[in-house]
Design a protein around this nucleic acid. Structure first.
Lengths: 340, 340
DNA sequence: ATGAAAGCGCTAACAT
DNA sequence: ATGTTAGCGCTTTCAT
């Protein structure tokens, strides 16, 4: 069964294709009766204007491209959920690509989609791109009039809209809560010291300590590598043996769990003897014993926000020419790894 | 900066557009020298053929549509990873939609994409669709010559390629391992008794018991609702108090964790006194104490397989006319919630 | 070896 | 109120 075109309808009623086109678009030029019969016929036969013809003509595709570093990351999956929802709400499709944290894949993807496939990009830069600090592929596409909105992992130097979370504030709040509940020796474990957001969290930790008039002990700032996730406990153990630590803030869930297991294995009780707060997306945090108190990022809202910004830019809504950065706040979600 | 078109290139060299087109496609009709200078110029100026013009002309888009029930589900995220990878490898883009387990969203999505946007569908049906047992939206799109490949959650009645996992076999293997390691009273906890795959797992559990010449005790087959996930422990507790249970197979990770917490809170040791095997995608399983032994599904391979099947069908590769169902086997991944 | 022209499905300016 | 025509960017058949 071939797809129905405007031409077929025109033939069927022995009218011109422009009459049909106008009728379907409810033009005032066409008589009520013709409009009715044509619209009726189109509906019954399930006519749908050809997407590519429309896009070619109108020079816009009503689709956006999203580049996500890693969909297995729950946070990014949440962001994507928000993107898809907001895009659909506005009648946009979304082409999704995973960069796998690879610079090359990111560049290739942008190349692939920079041929009129999409009206704009949403992206969170790959780890490798962040390290390389090479953003020419991004500046180039912006020059070519394809708008970009970056989310979460953002390239400061690139001139475009951005949506980020307030990582440092999240850490400050975490420190404040620990201090309030009597913790004196707060450690910080980072698996992301190579990333901007990881550095922000660390800065927030320091700032938080200062605010609480607590001393910053460099021995309590622990940097480990994400790729070593299978040996977190082994790697962390010495830190806990050589220092007096009564609480920890971690940049990720896995190291929070590892820290907790270490102190538990020494017979300590969480949260009575030891408190834990983790930056987190929540999935693992809700299944540990005890459940983790977290600095929670609102991925879905971030996705919605970024998408809205991009669509506003594409459709040149009021104020679209300003370049904005929006900040999504974090929430401290109290579970059972901290005292009240 | 406007995008370069074939016309611009033609003007620049004062040749016709068809010459340019042929030159860019390396046609034998064009002289070596002209080809060279045109290709060179195109490369330098980063010419890219307009996607919509090409699609319109060629009547294919090199893009596939994927409908996923829920991207926050780690398994589906894994499938998606495989899809994206395989699609890209073959030069396809992927438009991704989330049905959110909703029948209506699924239908709308299919409507939205059935206008020449894509060359074929990949989908896992929404829970609601599975319950409604209404697949006319699917049969209709197949009739309209848009191929569909279903994965994981599959509509048996619909005539199309499918990729599924062997759920029942996974359960049989789980029972076998528990039996081998001395378990006598194996319970089964299902949060998915309304879904085909949940039923298959239960069937496999029964079959496994019979193979091991063990008695089937209906009291040990426990059905709970996924929406009650916050109260699994409360709901499950009575079963553990009223029955002699020394091991459990669960259809999901959360209830496995809940079961484990219950027995641990009674002072029992996992796996010494109690064994647990969970159907699982792995993320939570690797963070519990002890880590869970799982029946692991290979989501990424499933995604790759389904995508390859769809592309073969779209491109009418050898044998594309047969309708096939491929089965991805499960693996029993031994961690620490079972004995050896 | 190169070019003219038709056409993919649609919109819209311009007749009639 | 309806029709003709050009054109979106490209491929391809058919001249030349």
């Amino acid at each position: 069964m071939k797809k129905l075109t405007i031409k077929d309808i025109a033939n069927h009623f022995s009218v011109s294709i422009s009459t049909v086109s106008k009728a379907l678009n409810d033009s005032y030029e066409i008589s009520k009766s013709t409009k009715q019969k044509i619209q009726e016929y189109a509906k019954v036969h399930n006519y749908k204007p050809n997407f590519n013809a429309l896009s070619l003509k109108k020079r816009k595709t009503k689709t956006i491209g999203v580049i996500i570093p890693n969909m297995l990351n729950y946070f990014f999956a949440q962001v994507f959920k928000g993107v898809e929802k907001e895009a659909n709400k506005n009648g946009y499709k979304v082409i999704t690509c995973i960069s796998n944290e690879s610079f090359d894949k990111e560049v290739e993807t942008i190349e692939m989609l920079s041929n009129g496939s999409i009206d704009g990009f949403l992206l969170s830069i790959a780890e490798e791109t962040e390290l390389k600090n090479n953003f020419t592929h991004l500046t180039k596409t912006i020059e070519h009039a394809l708008p970009i909105v970056m989310f979460d992992r953002v390239a400061q130097g690139v001139d475009c809209d951005k949506v980020i979370t307030n990582d440092s504030e999240g850490a400050v709040n975490a420190v404040a809560h620990l201090a309030k509940t009597g913790c004196k020796h707060i450690a910080f474990i980072s698996t992301q010291s190579h990333l901007k957001s990881g550095q922000e969290r660390e800065l927030g930790y320091i700032e938080g300590l200062k605010k609480e008039k607590m001393q910053v002990n460099p021995n309590l700032v622990i940097h480990i590598l994400e790729e070593d996730y299978k040996q977190y406990e082994r790697i962390l153990l010495p830190y806990f043996e050589e220092n007096k630590i009564d609480s920890v803030i971690t940049t990720d869930e896995s190291s929070a769990i590892a820290a907790m297991k270490i102190v538990q294995s020494k017979g300590h009780h969480v949260p009575k003897d030891f408190s834990v707060i983790s930056f987190s997306n929540g999935i693992i945090a809700r299944h540990s014993s005890p459940k983790l108190t977290t600095v929670s990022q609102h991925g879905e809202i971030m996705g919605e926000t970024a998408t809205k910004m991009l669509i506003d830019k594409i459709e040149k809504k009021q104020g679209y020419e300003e370049i904005k950065t929006k900040i999504i706040k974090t929430d401290l979600v109290f579970r059972n790894s901290t005292k009240i």
